[in-house]
Computed example of a mutant assay.
Amino acid sequence: MNLSCIIIDDEPNAVKLLEMLIGQTTQWQLLTKCYNGLEALAFLKENKHKVDFIFLDINMPHLSGMELAGLLPSDTKIVFTTAYSEFAAESYTFKTIDYLLKPITLKRFLAAQQKIEFYFGKTPAAVAMPVQSSDQEYFFVKSGKVLRKILLEHILYFEGEKEYVRVVTHTDQLLIYRRLKDIEEQLTVPFVRVHNSYIVNTKQLNKIQDNHIYIGDKHIPVSEKFKDGFMAVINQRIF
């Protein structure tokens, strides 16, 4: 997705890291890098309609990121970048898309990229609806600039991690920005929800014992909330 952004941060190394991540993993246009709030205000005043969103550091001298955000038009979309987690709640009083804690890792940046593109695209960037094929069902996971095709039959399980879902196959673990509930709504048997944090592919189960599912070396608990629905599927396969 072609979006435009700017970086506002007084730390040259932090700016270089973000610039590298943007250049290597996205198709975004980085319009400029500002090293203080006043420089950013001047640029945004002249280029307001060209900037889709800004990366904004919080801890800057003279004019902090929070103070700067308060001076910007209320519809300015912001991704905050900071080493301090205590500003997270306050940051969402603005049009905040994401809140990145420094040092920003590649894994976390890719998750933020999916969230940002989902925000502007208004359609799920991470996972497409399963598509019927004459042979097999599949869907796509966005990883950096690449849409990776994954066959549903290769998936062992989905694991929810707050705002993210980990898709686990025999060879890969991919983190996507979706809720597990949204994934569940797109799937049918053999995929079954067994826990608040897990959807499993029942074709991949090795055994069930003591309210636990075994898929390879992974032990997955079966919660009381989902046990009846899960066992209803399993009972159809018991001889």
Score class of each variant (00 low, 15 high):
172 D>G: 05
232 A>P: 06
68 L>G: 00
114 Q>E: 15
110 L>V: 08
1 M>H: 04
35 Y>T: 10
206 N>L: 11
77 K>L: 07
11 E>L: 07
47 N>H: 15
23 G>I: 03
32 T>L: 06
139 F>V: 10
205 L>D: 02
10 D>R: 02
174 L>P: 01
236 Q>I: 00
138 Y>Q: 05
220 I>S: 10
189 V>Q: 12
97 I>R: 06
153 E>H: 13
110 L>I: 06
203 K>C: 09
79 V>I: 11
126 A>Q: 03
114 Q>D: 13
51 V>I: 09
166 R>Q: 13
223 S>N: 03
136 Q>M: 12
102 K>C: 02
208 I>V: 15
190 P>F: 02
108 R>F: 09
36 N>H: 14
120 F>H: 03
185 E>V: 10
139 F>R: 03
216 G>P: 00
130 P>F: 04
195 H>T: 08
98 D>K: 01
2 N>K: 14
100 L>A: 09
90 E>H: 08
7 I>Q: 04
112 A>D: 04
88 A>P: 01
228 D>Q: 14
226 F>C: 03
217 D>Q: 14
197 S>H: 09
122 K>L: 11
61 P>G: 02
160 G>L: 08
8 I>V: 14
146 V>G: 08
217 D>L: 10
212 H>T: 13
217 D>A: 13
119 Y>M: 09
130 P>H: 06
178 R>T: 13
98 D>R: 02
12 P>N: 04
16 K>I: 04
13 N>H: 14
116 I>V: 12
152 L>C: 10
40 A>K: 01
214 Y>Q: 13
17 L>E: 09
124 P>Q: 08
44 L>A: 06
188 T>S: 14
121 G>M: 04
35 Y>N: 11
85 S>P: 05
196 N>V: 13
96 T>Y: 07
87 F>E: 05
134 S>R: 15
194 V>N: 03
192 V>I: 15
118 F>T: 15
63 L>S: 09
233 V>G: 00
196 N>R: 15
48 K>T: 09
207 K>F: 13
137 E>M: 14
232 A>H: 13
118 F>V: 05
182 D>W: 07
141 V>I: 15
51 V>G: 06
231 M>F: 15
30 L>S: 02
209 Q>V: 13
70 G>F: 02
217 D>K: 12
176 I>M: 11
23 G>T: 06
